[in-house]
Amino acid sequence: MNNSSVTTKVRNEERHKFCWVCYGTEEDDTKDVPWVHPCKCKGSSRWVHEHCLQRWFDEKQKGQPSRKVSCPQCNTEYVVILPKVGKFVYVLELSDKIAQKLSPILAGGIFIGSVYWTAVTYGAVTVMQVLGHKEGLNVMESADPLFLLIGLPTIPLMLVLNTETRQYTEYTPPITEYPLSATRVLCGAMAFPTVATVVGKALFSNVNSNFQRTLLGGIAFVAIKGCMKIYYKQQQYLRQRQRKILNFDDGDNSEKKLENQTTPEQESTTHDSYG
């Protein structure tokens, strides 16, 4: 095909509109339908039925009306004008958009807020537990409210951080050691003041000050728990050292195997008390 015949063909196609979506021509139209030439394309890709292009838009936007669509050939971005809407619809659209954007922020805020208030409540309960009900209330009532709002939630935070650092600096022998579990750290830290109060009441009932009694209880608890833990680890270590690996059982010495298996099991079951 030479150059001039190409030009005539292009001219021909521009005069006889030809839709690049449905491949119909203007002559094929059964009724008067609008045609558009929405991009830089010439020749057979110049014209398209408006309703065919609308359908192509729907396919490309996939339910997101704000997404831009370009011509797949020449990359021209199609210019779209949406009809003007009334004030009421405009307000509806605006509030829809705002709600869509605001929801995640709001949900995050609610979450952080509830965590914060839980921490404040926990802090207040702990103060009353440690100082005694009346004295604790007195201290909190006399304190600056701003100080309370910051100070109370830091109580659980400090407890958790304290447990965590203690766990990290501890020597871990090469025997069964559970990986540091977040839930365990949290539960341990949160339960600590209660445990300290209980231990204080049990061991130091002759001390009059609530605060001192709880403090002593806490120290005693940590000391007892430490001793028990060391003992437990030591036993674990010894048990590990004494383990035996059996010969493969090919049928004739099954009695011996049974005997060897029971001995270390019996030792261990008694040491399961853990602080």
Binding site: V21, Y23, P72, Q73
Partner: peptide, 8 residues
Amino acid sequence: DQWAAAMT
């Protein structure tokens, strides 16, 4: 994904 309706 690079399909275009003008292709045949």
